[in-house]
């Protein structure tokens, strides 16, 4: 069985994560265009800065949280490690390391995508153009996904790629949900109003989940139903449940098919996480605080990532016993 260099495994895992992240950042910005409007139609872009806990870094670079500044910070600012261009640049650097492994088409598409973003100026990300540009970024990321699906060799590397993609996607879904439920907590007078409903609509649409949601809940749209759908639905490709089921099965197959004996620890973690997702209900989650629940999920994704790194990317070092 062909061996996979540990460094390649790490790069391919992060390549997938950064591309998925870029797509989701574009989705969040796209949604925020709608969310940032209050019931009077005014926009408040500082919320998205707050959501990402980026206030300190942001205000060191920009005097005000104008639409123009916030969009520049999150799309084109190379100094901001959480910008789209930084994600695509990191994806490209990983792809550069991986060029011996990935298809030429995968590399060429990322290379062209990055150079295109690099050539964008302030006008390209002006608020009136933002939906079109976010659509472009989403589509470039999806093109990457398609090229990868169609050209990437299906051995170990493929498993690490999909581990990265699904972990990142699960993580990003919790973040999109958090925008609505945490920072933009509806004021009591807005609940159930047209503004509130339209924001939930937008949230679903940003995750390309509106129609899927309608198939499951044809007649109503409640905040709890939307949150439950994004977290626990068994069939929606961006739900945390579907992503984690995929992660668990990938880890399983790495253990059995490739006999990576050190993969046991991450597999145990992921089994545990999957078990707890399956036994949850959205009602219980909301009762205990949705934001707190999302926080805990994000922490468990992060420790699963460390376990994967420890087991596969640093396999030459002795395994340390982590809690």
């Amino acid at each position: 069985m062909a061996a996979l260099l540990a460094r390649y495994a790490e790069c391919i895992f992060w390549l997938a994560r950064y591309m998925e992240r870029a797509e989701n950042l574009a989705r969040i910005l796209d949604v925020n265009e709608t969310f940032a409007r209050d019931s009077y139609g005014a926009t408040n872009w500082v919320t998205i800065v707050r959501l990402n806990a980026d206030e300190k870094r942001f205000f060191e670079l920009y005097p005000t949280a104008s639409a123009k500044n916030v969009l520049n910070f999150y799309i084109l600012d190379q100094q901001n490690p959480t910008s789209i261009i930084a994600a695509v640049s990191s994806a490209r650097e990983n792809a550069r390391q991986l060029r011996p492994l990935i298809s030429t088409e995968m590399w060429a598409q990322i290379n062209v995508f990055y150079n295109k973003l690099l050539a964008w100026g302030p006008n390209d990300i002006a608020p009136q153009n933002i939906q079109r540009q976010c659509a472009f970024i989403k589509e470039a990321c999806q093109t990457h996904t398609g090229i990868t699906e169609g050209t990437f060799f299906r051995d170990q590397g493929w498993y690490f790629y999909n581990l990265g993609r699904n972990l990142e996607r699960a993580d990003q879904t919790t973040r999109v949900l958090d925008i609505k439920y945490h920072t933009l907590l509806p004021s009591p007078r807005d609940v159930g109003t047209p503004v509130d409903i339209s924001q939930w609509n937008s949230l679903l649409r940003s995750a390309a989940g509106y129609h899927a949601f309608r198939r499951v809940y044809p007649r109503g749209l409640t905040p709890a139903a939307v949150a439950g759908f994004l977290l626990f639905n068994d069939n929606f490709p961006r739900s945390v449940m579907v992503c984690m089921r995929e992660v668990d099965s990938l880890l399983n197959r790495l253990n059995s098919k490739y006999r990576l004996r050190r993969g046991t620890l991450p597999l145990e973690r992921s089994d545990e996480l999957l078990g707890s997702l399956a036994s949850q209900t959205i009602e219980a989650v909301i009762a205990g605080g949705l934001h707190e629940y999302l926080d805990r999920l994000q922490l468990s994704f992060s420790s699963l990532t460390s376990d994967i790194a420890q087991a596969f990317f640093h396999a030459d070092q002795p395994a340390t016993m982590t809690a």
Binding site: L4, L5, A6, R7, F312, A315
Partner: peptide, 21 residues
């Protein structure tokens, strides 16, 4: 595989590469 120096290690005068396994 394209390896870099950090991907290789010598033990007992034999050369090894660091893989996922």
């Amino acid at each position: 595989p394209l390896v870099e120096g950090r991907d290789l290690i010598v033990e007992n005068d034999k050369v090894y590469m660091k893989t996922t396994g």
